[in-house]
Amino acid sequence: MSSFTRRVLGGLTAAAVLGSAFGASAQETPVRIAYILADSMLPALYAQDEGYFTEAGLAADLIAVQSGPATVAAVVSGEADVGYAAPIPPINGRLNGVPVKMFLQLGQEVAPDKTYVWIVASRASGITDMAGTEGKKIGFNANGGLCELMWRDHLTAAGLSIDDVQPVVLPFPEQEAALQQGNIDATCTVNPFYASMTSNAELGAVMLATGTLVDLSQPLMSDAFFASDGWLAANGETAVKLAQVMDRARKELLADRATLEATAVKYMELTPEAAKSFNLPIVNDSMTMTADDVQRILDAMIKTGMTTGPLNGAEFVAEVEY
Protein backbone atom coordinates (compact mmCIF):
# COMPACT_ATOMS: atom_id res chain seq x y z
CA MET A 1 0.00 0.00 0.00
CA SER A 2 1.49 3.32 -1.01
CA SER A 3 1.87 5.99 1.61
CA PHE A 4 -0.65 8.11 -0.27
CA THR A 5 -3.34 5.43 -0.12
CA ARG A 6 -2.62 4.98 3.53
CA ARG A 7 -3.09 8.69 4.14
CA VAL A 8 -6.33 8.70 2.23
CA LEU A 9 -7.55 5.73 4.25
CA GLY A 10 -6.40 7.48 7.41
CA GLY A 11 -8.42 10.50 6.39
CA LEU A 12 -11.46 8.38 5.71
CA THR A 13 -11.21 6.72 9.09
CA ALA A 14 -10.82 10.09 10.75
CA ALA A 15 -13.92 11.34 8.94
CA ALA A 16 -15.86 8.27 10.07
CA VAL A 17 -14.74 8.76 13.66
CA LEU A 18 -15.70 12.41 13.51
CA GLY A 19 -19.08 11.45 12.17
CA SER A 20 -19.76 8.94 14.94
CA ALA A 21 -18.57 11.38 17.61
CA PHE A 22 -21.70 13.44 17.02
CA GLY A 23 -23.88 10.64 18.23
CA ALA A 24 -21.92 10.04 21.44
CA SER A 25 -22.04 11.69 24.90
CA ALA A 26 -25.02 10.39 26.83
CA GLN A 27 -24.63 11.45 30.45
CA GLU A 28 -22.85 14.79 29.89
CA THR A 29 -24.86 17.96 29.36
CA PRO A 30 -24.35 19.09 25.77
CA VAL A 31 -23.34 22.71 25.25
CA ARG A 32 -22.76 23.91 21.72
CA ILE A 33 -20.79 27.14 21.38
CA ALA A 34 -20.77 29.14 18.13
CA TYR A 35 -17.71 31.38 18.05
CA ILE A 36 -15.70 33.69 15.87
CA LEU A 37 -12.00 32.92 15.93
CA ALA A 38 -10.65 35.63 18.25
CA ASP A 39 -8.18 35.87 21.09
CA SER A 40 -10.39 35.69 24.18
CA MET A 41 -12.02 32.47 22.91
CA LEU A 42 -8.68 30.69 23.21
CA PRO A 43 -9.29 29.49 26.82
CA ALA A 44 -12.38 27.61 25.64
CA LEU A 45 -10.43 25.86 22.89
CA TYR A 46 -7.69 25.06 25.37
CA ALA A 47 -10.21 23.73 27.91
CA GLN A 48 -11.69 21.48 25.25
CA ASP A 49 -8.23 20.09 24.53
CA GLU A 50 -7.47 19.46 28.19
CA GLY A 51 -10.81 17.78 28.80
CA TYR A 52 -11.98 20.37 31.36
CA PHE A 53 -15.48 20.47 29.90
CA THR A 54 -15.83 16.72 30.29
CA GLU A 55 -14.54 16.90 33.85
CA ALA A 56 -17.28 19.43 34.61
CA GLY A 57 -19.89 17.14 33.07
CA LEU A 58 -20.28 19.18 29.90
CA ALA A 59 -20.05 17.87 26.34
CA ALA A 60 -18.85 20.96 24.49
CA ASP A 61 -19.12 21.29 20.74
CA LEU A 62 -17.27 24.33 19.39
CA ILE A 63 -18.48 25.66 16.04
CA ALA A 64 -16.49 28.37 14.28
CA VAL A 65 -18.49 30.85 12.20
CA GLN A 66 -17.40 33.81 10.17
CA SER A 67 -19.11 36.78 11.70
CA GLY A 68 -20.69 38.12 14.85
CA PRO A 69 -24.20 38.16 13.35
CA ALA A 70 -23.74 34.50 12.37
CA THR A 71 -23.09 33.56 16.00
CA VAL A 72 -26.37 35.24 16.95
CA ALA A 73 -28.10 33.40 14.14
CA ALA A 74 -26.65 30.11 15.34
CA VAL A 75 -27.97 30.70 18.85
CA VAL A 76 -31.42 31.83 17.75
CA SER A 77 -31.90 29.03 15.25
CA GLY A 78 -31.13 26.54 18.01
CA GLU A 79 -28.00 25.21 16.30
CA ALA A 80 -25.92 26.49 19.20
CA ASP A 81 -26.66 27.08 22.88
CA VAL A 82 -24.09 29.78 23.52
CA GLY A 83 -22.56 32.38 21.23
CA TYR A 84 -19.22 34.15 21.50
CA ALA A 85 -18.81 37.54 19.81
CA ALA A 86 -18.13 41.20 20.42
CA PRO A 87 -21.00 42.73 22.40
CA ILE A 88 -22.47 44.68 19.48
CA PRO A 89 -23.99 41.77 17.50
CA PRO A 90 -26.04 40.50 20.48
CA ILE A 91 -27.00 44.10 21.30
CA ASN A 92 -28.10 44.72 17.71
CA GLY A 93 -29.92 41.41 17.77
CA ARG A 94 -31.87 42.31 20.88
CA LEU A 95 -32.65 45.76 19.46
CA ASN A 96 -34.23 44.00 16.48
CA GLY A 97 -36.37 41.63 18.49
CA VAL A 98 -33.97 38.70 18.82
CA PRO A 99 -34.22 37.50 22.44
CA VAL A 100 -30.59 37.02 23.49
CA LYS A 101 -28.74 38.19 26.59
CA MET A 102 -25.05 38.36 27.40
CA PHE A 103 -23.93 36.54 30.55
CA LEU A 104 -20.12 36.46 30.72
CA GLN A 105 -17.52 38.96 29.59
CA LEU A 106 -14.35 37.34 28.30
CA GLY A 107 -12.19 40.31 27.39
CA GLN A 108 -11.73 43.97 28.21
CA GLU A 109 -9.66 46.95 27.23
CA VAL A 110 -8.36 49.68 29.47
CA ALA A 111 -6.06 52.67 28.99
CA PRO A 112 -3.18 53.14 28.72
CA ASP A 113 -1.51 49.85 27.80
CA LYS A 114 -4.21 47.19 27.61
CA THR A 115 -5.83 48.10 24.31
CA TYR A 116 -6.32 45.52 21.60
CA VAL A 117 -7.68 47.40 18.61
CA TRP A 118 -5.95 50.03 16.49
CA ILE A 119 -6.60 52.53 13.73
CA VAL A 120 -3.69 52.54 11.33
CA ALA A 121 -2.89 54.62 8.24
CA SER A 122 -0.40 53.86 5.51
CA ARG A 123 2.59 56.16 5.05
CA ALA A 124 1.57 56.74 1.43
CA SER A 125 -1.79 58.17 2.48
CA GLY A 126 -0.05 61.06 4.22
CA ILE A 127 -2.45 60.83 7.15
CA THR A 128 -0.87 61.62 10.51
CA ASP A 129 -3.82 62.07 12.86
CA MET A 130 -7.54 61.32 13.11
CA ALA A 131 -8.46 64.71 11.64
CA GLY A 132 -6.46 63.79 8.55
CA THR A 133 -8.85 60.97 7.66
CA GLU A 134 -11.45 63.43 6.39
CA GLY A 135 -12.56 62.45 2.88
CA LYS A 136 -10.29 59.38 2.87
CA LYS A 137 -11.15 55.72 2.29
CA ILE A 138 -11.29 53.96 5.62
CA GLY A 139 -11.62 50.23 6.28
CA PHE A 140 -13.38 48.22 8.93
CA ASN A 141 -14.21 44.54 9.12
CA ALA A 142 -18.01 44.65 9.35
CA ASN A 143 -20.93 46.97 9.76
CA GLY A 144 -22.28 46.93 13.28
CA GLY A 145 -19.10 45.72 14.94
CA LEU A 146 -16.68 47.12 17.51
CA CYS A 147 -14.55 48.57 14.71
CA GLU A 148 -17.42 50.65 13.41
CA LEU A 149 -18.01 51.93 16.94
CA MET A 150 -14.30 52.70 17.24
CA TRP A 151 -14.24 54.71 14.01
CA ARG A 152 -17.36 56.59 15.00
CA ASP A 153 -16.13 57.41 18.49
CA HIS A 154 -12.67 58.55 17.44
CA LEU A 155 -14.01 60.53 14.47
CA THR A 156 -16.48 62.28 16.78
CA ALA A 157 -13.64 63.16 19.14
CA ALA A 158 -11.74 64.68 16.21
CA GLY A 159 -14.76 66.79 15.27
CA LEU A 160 -15.74 64.62 12.29
CA SER A 161 -18.46 62.05 11.66
CA ILE A 162 -18.73 58.81 9.73
CA ASP A 163 -20.25 60.81 6.83
CA ASP A 164 -16.98 62.71 6.40
CA VAL A 165 -15.07 59.56 5.36
CA GLN A 166 -15.60 56.84 2.76
CA PRO A 167 -16.08 53.54 4.58
CA VAL A 168 -15.02 50.30 2.87
CA VAL A 169 -16.02 47.06 4.55
CA LEU A 170 -13.13 44.63 4.29
CA PRO A 171 -12.32 41.48 6.29
CA PHE A 172 -9.30 41.84 8.62
CA PRO A 173 -6.99 39.55 6.62
CA GLU A 174 -7.35 41.62 3.44
CA GLN A 175 -6.75 45.00 5.01
CA GLU A 176 -2.96 45.00 5.03
CA ALA A 177 -2.74 44.29 1.31
CA ALA A 178 -5.43 46.89 0.62
CA LEU A 179 -3.51 49.50 2.65
CA GLN A 180 -0.24 48.72 0.93
CA GLN A 181 -1.78 48.77 -2.54
CA GLY A 182 -3.43 52.09 -1.77
CA ASN A 183 -6.99 50.77 -1.99
CA ILE A 184 -7.74 52.15 1.45
CA ASP A 185 -5.94 54.90 3.35
CA ALA A 186 -6.57 53.88 6.94
CA THR A 187 -8.18 50.96 8.72
CA CYS A 188 -9.27 49.55 12.04
CA THR A 189 -7.41 46.35 12.87
CA VAL A 190 -6.62 43.82 15.59
CA ASN A 191 -3.83 41.37 16.27
CA PRO A 192 -2.19 39.42 14.67
CA PHE A 193 -2.84 41.74 11.73
CA TYR A 194 -1.72 44.85 13.58
CA ALA A 195 1.62 43.25 14.44
CA SER A 196 2.03 42.24 10.83
CA MET A 197 1.31 45.78 9.62
CA THR A 198 3.71 47.43 12.02
CA SER A 199 6.52 45.11 10.96
CA ASN A 200 5.89 45.81 7.27
CA ALA A 201 8.51 48.42 6.34
CA GLU A 202 7.10 49.14 2.87
CA LEU A 203 3.70 49.89 4.35
CA GLY A 204 5.05 52.27 6.98
CA ALA A 205 2.04 51.98 9.28
CA VAL A 206 1.12 55.09 11.25
CA MET A 207 -0.92 54.40 14.37
CA LEU A 208 -3.69 57.02 14.66
CA ALA A 209 -5.64 55.70 17.63
CA THR A 210 -5.93 52.72 19.93
CA GLY A 211 -8.75 51.40 22.08
CA THR A 212 -12.38 51.07 21.04
CA LEU A 213 -13.44 54.25 22.80
CA VAL A 214 -11.51 57.47 23.29
CA ASP A 215 -12.28 57.35 26.99
CA LEU A 216 -10.94 54.08 28.36
CA SER A 217 -10.24 55.16 31.92
CA GLN A 218 -12.58 52.32 32.98
CA PRO A 219 -12.29 48.77 31.56
CA LEU A 220 -14.54 48.28 28.52
CA MET A 221 -15.93 44.86 27.64
CA SER A 222 -14.72 43.61 24.25
CA ASP A 223 -16.05 40.02 23.98
CA ALA A 224 -18.90 38.16 25.59
CA PHE A 225 -20.76 34.89 25.84
CA PHE A 226 -24.47 35.21 25.16
CA ALA A 227 -27.44 32.87 24.93
CA SER A 228 -31.15 33.02 24.27
CA ASP A 229 -33.43 34.07 27.12
CA GLY A 230 -35.03 30.64 27.05
CA TRP A 231 -31.77 28.75 27.31
CA LEU A 232 -30.53 30.96 30.16
CA ALA A 233 -33.74 30.44 32.12
CA ALA A 234 -33.59 26.66 31.78
CA ASN A 235 -29.84 26.06 32.02
CA GLY A 236 -28.58 28.22 34.86
CA GLU A 237 -26.48 25.39 36.20
CA THR A 238 -24.84 24.72 32.84
CA ALA A 239 -23.99 28.42 32.51
CA VAL A 240 -22.27 28.31 35.91
CA LYS A 241 -20.33 25.18 34.96
CA LEU A 242 -19.30 26.83 31.70
CA ALA A 243 -18.07 29.86 33.62
CA GLN A 244 -16.07 27.65 35.98
CA VAL A 245 -14.39 25.81 33.14
CA MET A 246 -13.54 29.10 31.41
CA ASP A 247 -12.20 30.52 34.66
CA ARG A 248 -9.91 27.56 35.18
CA ALA A 249 -8.59 27.68 31.61
CA ARG A 250 -8.07 31.45 31.72
CA LYS A 251 -6.08 31.26 34.94
CA GLU A 252 -3.86 28.51 33.59
CA LEU A 253 -3.17 30.32 30.33
CA LEU A 254 -2.46 33.61 32.08
CA ALA A 255 -0.03 31.88 34.43
CA ASP A 256 1.82 29.89 31.81
CA ARG A 257 3.24 31.88 28.91
CA ALA A 258 4.58 28.82 27.05
CA THR A 259 1.22 27.04 27.03
CA LEU A 260 -0.52 30.25 25.93
CA GLU A 261 1.82 30.61 22.97
CA ALA A 262 1.48 26.95 22.07
CA THR A 263 -2.32 27.24 22.17
CA ALA A 264 -2.23 30.36 19.99
CA VAL A 265 -0.03 28.55 17.50
CA LYS A 266 -2.33 25.55 17.50
CA TYR A 267 -5.71 27.23 17.17
CA MET A 268 -5.01 30.59 15.59
CA GLU A 269 -2.27 29.03 13.46
CA LEU A 270 0.05 31.88 14.39
CA THR A 271 3.70 31.47 13.56
CA PRO A 272 5.74 30.91 16.75
CA GLU A 273 7.29 34.40 16.30
CA ALA A 274 3.87 36.06 16.03
CA ALA A 275 2.72 34.14 19.10
CA LYS A 276 5.48 35.79 21.16
CA SER A 277 3.61 39.11 21.00
CA PHE A 278 0.24 37.46 21.63
CA ASN A 279 -1.71 38.41 24.76
CA LEU A 280 -5.09 37.52 26.15
CA PRO A 281 -7.18 40.72 26.31
CA ILE A 282 -8.02 40.28 29.97
CA VAL A 283 -8.22 43.17 32.43
CA ASN A 284 -10.77 41.95 34.98
CA ASP A 285 -10.16 38.65 36.72
CA SER A 286 -13.89 38.14 37.04
CA MET A 287 -16.07 37.39 34.01
CA THR A 288 -19.27 38.54 35.72
CA MET A 289 -21.10 41.15 33.71
CA THR A 290 -23.16 44.01 35.06
CA ALA A 291 -25.71 46.34 33.49
CA ASP A 292 -23.15 49.17 33.72
CA ASP A 293 -20.72 47.29 31.48
CA VAL A 294 -23.30 47.20 28.70
CA GLN A 295 -24.59 50.70 29.41
CA ARG A 296 -21.22 52.23 28.49
CA ILE A 297 -21.33 50.58 25.10
CA LEU A 298 -24.96 51.54 24.55
CA ASP A 299 -24.22 55.16 25.46
CA ALA A 300 -21.31 55.26 23.01
CA MET A 301 -23.50 53.76 20.28
CA ILE A 302 -26.19 56.36 20.89
CA LYS A 303 -23.72 59.25 21.10
CA THR A 304 -22.11 58.35 17.76
CA GLY A 305 -25.37 57.71 15.95
CA MET A 306 -25.07 53.91 15.60
CA THR A 307 -28.46 53.56 17.24
CA THR A 308 -31.07 55.74 18.89
CA GLY A 309 -31.70 55.86 22.62
CA PRO A 310 -32.55 55.78 25.35
CA LEU A 311 -31.62 52.18 26.13
CA ASN A 312 -31.28 50.33 29.41
CA GLY A 313 -28.20 48.14 29.81
CA ALA A 314 -29.91 45.85 32.31
CA GLU A 315 -32.16 44.46 29.57
CA PHE A 316 -29.16 43.05 27.73
CA VAL A 317 -27.55 41.21 30.63
CA ALA A 318 -28.18 38.03 32.56
CA GLU A 319 -25.83 37.96 35.53
CA VAL A 320 -24.23 34.61 36.27
CA GLU A 321 -22.51 34.00 39.61
CA TYR A 322 -19.93 31.29 39.57
Partner: peptide
Protein backbone atom coordinates in the same frame (compact mmCIF):
# COMPACT_ATOMS: atom_id res chain seq x y z
CA UNK B 1 -20.93 41.25 -0.33
CA UNK B 2 -17.20 40.68 0.10
CA UNK B 3 -15.75 43.98 -1.09
CA UNK B 4 -18.57 46.20 -0.20
CA UNK B 5 -19.11 49.85 -0.76
CA UNK B 6 -22.49 49.92 -2.49
CA UNK B 7 -24.84 47.78 -4.55
CA UNK B 8 -27.45 45.18 -3.67
CA UNK B 9 -24.83 42.80 -2.24
CA UNK B 10 -23.86 45.42 0.32
CA UNK B 11 -27.50 46.00 1.06
CA UNK B 12 -27.95 42.28 1.80
CA UNK B 13 -24.84 42.24 3.95
CA UNK B 14 -26.11 45.18 5.95
CA UNK B 15 -29.51 43.54 6.42
CA UNK B 16 -27.77 40.52 7.85
CA UNK B 17 -25.62 42.58 10.16
CA UNK B 18 -28.66 44.38 11.53
CA UNK B 19 -30.78 41.22 11.70
CA UNK B 20 -33.34 42.49 9.20
Amino acid sequence: MLLSTNGIGTYLQRSQETFR
